[in-house]
């Protein structure tokens, strides 16, 4: 029962972060919210019992966040 509650909360947080990544006008904020999405996915993978996938997701979340932030040097920060 406790596991179900925690999993439901994580899933709700996952949906919230996904919607806010789409809605946000500030691309830098969207990048960091995407990082939060990645770590939420890490916790979900851990709860479902696959630490290998969780480890990969954690590392790749860091790498993709770095890529997005570096690419934002060229782009405009605010999308119209």
């Amino acid at each position: 029962m406790q596991n179900l509650i925690i999993e439901a909360a994580l899933l709700l947080f996952l949906i919230g972060t996904t919607v806010s990544v789409i809605v946000l006008k500030d691309l830098l904020s969207a990048t960091f919210v995407y990082c939060a999405f990645s770590y939420c996915a890490v916790l979900l993978y851990l709860m479902m019992g696959s630490p290998d996938v969780a480890f990969t997701e954690a590392v790749i979340g860091v790498v993709s966040t770095i890529y997005f932030v570096v690419a934002l040097k060229k782009l405009d920060r605010w999308c119209k």
Partner: peptide
């Protein structure tokens, strides 16, 4: 343990990056 070639390579790359 969890991990392997891909994760180790990504970790090393994160250090250098």
């Amino acid at each position: 343990s969890p991990g392997g070639g891909f994760q180790a390579g990504a970790l090393l790359a994160v250090g250098v990056v």
